[in-house]
Design a protein around this nucleic acid. Structure first.
Length: 464
RNA sequence: GUGGUUGUAGCUCAGUCGGUUAGAGCACCAGAUUGUGAUUCUGGGGGUCGUGGGUUCGAGCCCCAUCUUCCACCCCA
């Protein structure tokens, strides 16, 4: 026997029964909505070939992939010179598999592998854990669940509009009201880069302006100049930070600023189409406002998002007044399947971060009591005779659909009642010699502390 | 990956300048009460002070390493 205390790896967690029950409630709401919008479930392995994952998330992302050491003699393919060539080179020699980093890339891989069996447009949802070798923080774990819904094989912006609808529906059903769905478009970002005379430098520009709300205009200015963006370009960029007005007004202003650029024009047209779809869908997201009066669905030209495969609309969802990163994000990717040899299949999707949503709901105390399922009634026994008497009663309660359990030994009443109390079981049935003689069982309401003598039929009626 | 922070009973936390046998509340167990939980009263168990080294006559406290937690970067769900 080892004497060391057992631990779990950094950034991972055990979930006790009470937590799992509440997490399942969140999963249930999400699943129901996905299915309502025509998405069907898919599952893929926890591990993928390392080559499938590398290069899809940018350089930063590659470093955050958990690699799996080859089995057996993992050094068999290496030579002493390989070590000298550095860890990147060595990794390819000793690791061929990795834990999935997100659900979108495995999905694209699945689509390519099953292209002949799939009918397009193909809509799937996927609820599985992913792993990232990040440094843990509040709301940031190394193992966490994503709930993805993606559709591939269509360019229609109806999909983008439906993503907004699904986000709005799920979060609303979970009891959240003060949240912002941010939307932007890679074309807008590219258009901005072109319009300020720094075409092709959009990744540097994105990284910088994404931090606008954190480090302010001066901080971004400094950052951009350090990245080698010309001062003239930075000066032309700054008007974009302060665009004001309704979404329609924003689009009009952007039209003037970006209309000449092909990419900007593409982005603006896409966004206009999305808004039009939402408008015809009578989307609540268009009407709802957050506390500050800003619209719930917010066109935010400073929203960037790092995942490198996005090419069209991009989304991010923030719950306001809670110290938590985004709880949902996604976007359109035109060439993900192309990386696996199937070009011309555009996809769009998004993901809910259940772990963060859980933390938010917990903090805001939004878990309804109905989400906490459990035993409805506990049968208390005194001796062998009462145990035998209780067994058919137990079965009849269960047959009636009532969650019931019999305390499995004739422990002291205090202990059995204490068990019911701790498990928050609302009713207890006492079966002693008196009850067995009369057939009237003692039903105790644990919340009110009242009890009455009832037949089993009366109890079933009362508890159903 | 960079810089910082945290760790003492099951939980939340005290613990003075480095000084005798490390405390409290809650929780737990037992009894008051042999057919009644949550409320009341009485008593009880529970600690290698995250782990491993070091300094010191002496370390929960100081130093180093490591693990963990949280925070700021980076990035993200």
């Amino acid at each position: 026997m080892s004497k060391e205390k057992p631990t779990i790896p950094k950034g991972t967690r055990d979930f006790g029964p009470a937590v799992v029950v509440k997490r399942n409630y969140v999963f249930g709401v999400i699943k129901k909505t996905f299915e309502k919008f025509g998405y069907l479930p898919l599952e893929t392995p926890a591990m993928e070939q390392l080559s499938v994952l590398t290069g899809k998330y940018g350089e930063e992302g590659d470093q955050l992939i958990f690699k799996i050491l080859n089995s057996g003699d993992f050094l068999s393919k290496t030579k002493t010179e390989d070590i000298a060539e550095g860890h990147k080179h060595l990794t390819r020699k000793i690791s061929e598999k990795a834990l999935r980093y997100d659900l979108t890339v495995p999905f694209a891989r699945f689509v390519v592998m099953n292209r002949n069996e799939i009918t397009f447009p193909f809509k799937r949802y996927q609820i599985q854990p992913v792993w990232r070798a990040d440094r843990p923080q509040r709301g940031r774990y190394r193992e966490f669940y994503q709930c993805d819904a993606d559709v591939v094989g269509t360019n229609s912006l109806l999909c983008e509009a439906e993503i907004v609808q699904m986000i709005n529906e799920v979060l609303t059903e979970l009891g959240l009201t003060d949240f912002t769905i941010k939307i932007n478009h890679r074309g807008i970002l590219a258009g901005i880069a072109e319009a300020i005379g720094e075409k092709g430098r959009e990744s540097d520009i994105c990284v910088a302006i994404d931090k606008l709300d954190k480090i302010g205009q001066e901080g971004v200015r400094k950052d951009l100049l350090e990245r080698g963006i010309s001062e003239a370009a930075v000066n032309r960029l700054e008007p974009f930070y302060t665009l004001q007005g309704s979404t329609a007004e924003l689009l009009d202003q952007l039209q003037i600023l970006l209309g000449e650029t092909a990419e900007g024009q593409r982005g603006l047209q896409d966004l206009r189409d999305v808004w039009q779809y939402l408008s015809h869908l009578n989307s609540q997201a268009l009407e709802a406002q957050i506390a500050s009066g800003a619209p719930r669905l917010l066109l935010d030209v400073t929203l960037a998002r790092g995942l490198s495969y996005y090419t069209g609309c991009i989304f991010e969802v923030k719950v306001n007044n809670v110290n938590m990163g985004s709880i949902s994000g996604g976007g359109r990717y035109d060439n993900l399947t192309g990386m696996f040899g199937l070009p011309g299949v555009s996809g769009v999707g998004f993901s809910f971060g259940v772990d963060r949503i859980y933390d938010v709901l917990d903090e805001l105390q939004l878990f309804p009591s109905s989400s906490q399922v459990g035993t409805k009634v506990l049968l208390v026994q005194f001796d062998k005779a009462s145990e035998l008497y209780a067994l058919p009663v137990l079965q009849q309660l269960r047959d009636a659909g009532i969650a019931a359990e019999l305390y499995p030994e004739p422990a002291k009443l205090k202990k059995q009642m204490g068990y019911a109390d701790q498990k928050n079981i609302p009713y207890v049935i006492l079966i002693g010699s008196e009850e067995m003689a009369t057939g009237k069982l003692k039903l105790r309401n644990m919340q009110q502390g009242e009890q009455q003598d009832l037949t089993l039929e009366e109890i079933i009626t009362k508890l159903s």
